Amino acid sequence: MNGVELFLLGRTLMKLGEQAIPTEGLPQYSTSNRAVLIVASDILEHPNSSVGDIAERTSFAQSKVSACVARLREGGAIETTTDPADRRRLLVRPARRISERVARIRSTPITATLEAALGTDDPPRIAEITTALETLAEHLAPEAIARARSGTAHGPGGAPAGAG
């Protein structure tokens, strides 16, 4: 696999993830699900960040981040507080209690989405793919991006990747 193939796989997985998230009975927003998920991921990685900090890290306009934050707050996924050092800024963090909506999203299986994407409802095949995705998620958690950017990946025997 090369970088382009990895990128395309990641894009496919993102789109499948969006399709797997239940939206029934929820209001429609102008902010895309993808943007909301990217902002939510950033908030998980960097709790107590300001909207400006999130905008800088995600490369989204501050207005888009504000819209995402409002949507996440309304859904009960995050909490905001006023920055004690600068009362004009909001600090954003994951909610201490998981809302019913967030719990429903997190508990919705991906089986139907995988069946549609793969064109099969064969239980062993769906289980195989689900296990592979769980293995990837275990090894490539969001902090893996930071490690890749900082070059702290290590090869066999603890040597920096590419050393030798």
Rank of each mutant, 00 (worst) to 15 (best):
V65K: 03
I78C: 07
L44M: 06
E74L: 11
G17D: 06
F60V: 14
L90E: 15
S66Y: 07
R57V: 14
T81Q: 03
S32H: 09
L72F: 12
R87H: 03
T31I: 02
V92I: 01
G17F: 09
P27Q: 08
V39H: 13
V69A: 06
L72M: 11
G17A: 03
S41I: 00
R57W: 15
H46I: 06
F60G: 10
T80P: 04
K64N: 11
P47D: 10
E79P: 02
S32V: 10
P47C: 09
S49T: 00
L37A: 02
E79M: 09
R57D: 14
R88I: 01
G17E: 05
P22N: 10
P47A: 10
T23S: 13
R93A: 14
T82A: 01
A67V: 04
A95P: 06
V92R: 01
L72D: 12
K15D: 14
R87A: 01
A70N: 13
N33P: 04
R96T: 09
T81G: 02
R88C: 00
D83F: 03
G25H: 09
I21L: 09
L26Y: 08
S63Y: 11
V39A: 15
L16S: 08
G25Y: 11
S50M: 02
T81V: 04
T58L: 05
T80R: 06
E56T: 04
S32D: 08
R34C: 01
S49K: 01
A70T: 12
D53I: 10
V39R: 14
V39P: 11
G75T: 12
V65G: 04
R96C: 00
A70G: 13
A85M: 03
G25I: 09
P84E: 07
R57M: 15
L91I: 07
Q28R: 15
R71L: 04
R97Y: 05
A20V: 09
V69E: 05
P84Q: 05
L16P: 09
P47Y: 10
G17H: 08
T80Y: 04
R93L: 10
